[in-house]
Amino acid sequence: MGSGGLRVVGGTGAPVVVRAPGKINLALRVGGLREDGSHELVTVFEAVSLGEQVRASPSSRLRCTVSGEGAGDVPVDERNLAVRAALLLAERAGVPPRVRLDVVKEVPVAGGMAGGSADAAAALVACDALWGTGLTREELAVLGGELGADVPFALLGGTAVGTGRGEQVVPALARGERSWVLALSATGLSTPAVYGELDRSRVASGVEDAEVDVAEEQVVELLAALRSGDVADVGAALVNDLQEPALALAPHLRRTLDVGLEAGAVAGVVSGSGPTVAFLVDGREQGLAVAVALTASGVAADVRRVTSPAPGARVMTGER
């Protein structure tokens, strides 16, 4: 953003509805701690058809409501990422934060699928349109990176490689559409707790933090599989350094993985910091079989069938 600040061109004042996707980390390699206290990452994101919706409407003050998946566990004050996104955009644009944000959640709360980050991305796009602040996607992504490491990807969508804390994203070439069955848990997992368990296990194993390094080469196999579009190759290349820490904190997820794989899934992986488990499936019939097995076994609080890649945060035309 230029030294002259953000230009305000004036919005229409009509409500704006934006949808932003949840994500699965097809690869998540975790390096050592950075000076800012976060971990160095190399990850491959893929946006899924399960997403969040934010409706921004004119209001005399900043207000927020939340409905849908896990709404009772989501704050509506400045702890809410959508609220923080609106406040940040208003501050940088020099406009009063007068907006009502109605958030409709589909992505599980604390499920490792970046639902809060999707809310923030949707709020940035919606408020930008409502207030007419005229930011580019690149400028919105810079703001998004200040709000959370996954927000820039929720703006971009599709398939992308993330580096740094995950906030530096570049699109990745991926052929075809992938089908997934998601096993949702009744309770979430704390992302800091999962990273803390990873650090603890590395110390216990005698691994020095400085020895843990990640490089884009560690995801080359997956990127090649995505370019080919071969579902078996993609499944074989799925990797998540946070999976074992998540399983240590939530041992029941091992049974979830076993049930899905025994039912015929191509592969299964804990999504991000968990506890959502994502099963890659080859076609409708296999997906149905995996979903039925997960439901019948009782290992999942809920089961969803989704596809990827999905587009990033976008205004939904015709919705008011």
Rank of each mutant, 00 (worst) to 15 (best):
residue 3 S to Q: 10
residue 5 G to N: 10
residue 11 G to P: 04
residue 12 T to W: 01
residue 19 R to S: 11
residue 19 R to Q: 11
residue 25 N to L: 09
residue 27 A to F: 09
residue 28 L to W: 09
residue 30 V to S: 09
residue 32 G to Y: 02
residue 32 G to S: 14
residue 34 R to E: 05
residue 38 S to L: 15
residue 40 E to K: 02
residue 42 V to R: 06
residue 50 L to A: 06
residue 53 Q to D: 00
residue 59 S to V: 05
residue 64 C to A: 15
residue 68 G to M: 08
residue 71 A to D: 00
residue 72 G to F: 00
residue 72 G to V: 00
residue 76 V to H: 06
residue 78 E to F: 05
residue 79 R to G: 15
residue 87 L to P: 01
residue 89 L to G: 10
residue 93 A to E: 01
residue 95 V to Q: 05
residue 105 K to A: 10
residue 113 M to H: 09
residue 117 S to W: 13
residue 117 S to E: 09
residue 127 C to F: 15
residue 128 D to C: 11
residue 130 L to R: 10
residue 135 L to P: 10
residue 136 T to K: 06
residue 136 T to Y: 02
residue 141 A to D: 07
residue 143 L to G: 01
residue 145 G to F: 10
residue 150 D to Y: 11
residue 153 F to A: 05
residue 156 L to R: 08
residue 161 V to D: 05
residue 163 T to A: 15
residue 165 R to D: 03
residue 166 G to Q: 08
residue 167 E to A: 14
residue 172 A to W: 12
residue 173 L to C: 07
residue 175 R to G: 01
residue 177 E to I: 10
residue 178 R to Y: 13
residue 181 V to M: 08
residue 182 L to S: 07
residue 187 T to C: 05
residue 187 T to E: 15
residue 188 G to D: 04
residue 193 A to K: 13
residue 194 V to Q: 08
residue 195 Y to C: 04
residue 196 G to W: 07
residue 197 E to P: 07
residue 202 R to Q: 07
residue 203 V to Q: 14
residue 205 S to P: 01
residue 208 E to F: 06
residue 209 D to C: 00
residue 215 A to D: 15
residue 216 E to W: 00
residue 229 G to S: 10
residue 233 D to F: 02
residue 234 V to C: 12
residue 235 G to K: 03
residue 237 A to K: 07
residue 243 Q to W: 10
residue 247 L to D: 00
residue 249 L to S: 10
residue 250 A to F: 14
residue 251 P to G: 12
residue 254 R to S: 14
residue 254 R to L: 13
residue 254 R to F: 07
residue 256 T to D: 00
residue 264 G to R: 00
residue 264 G to V: 05
residue 267 A to V: 02
residue 271 S to F: 04
residue 272 G to T: 08
residue 273 S to R: 12
residue 277 V to W: 06
residue 282 D to S: 13
residue 282 D to P: 00
residue 285 E to Q: 12
residue 286 Q to N: 09
residue 288 L to N: 01
residue 296 A to V: 14
residue 297 S to K: 03
residue 300 A to W: 02
residue 302 D to Q: 14
residue 308 S to P: 03
residue 315 V to Q: 04
residue 319 E to K: 08
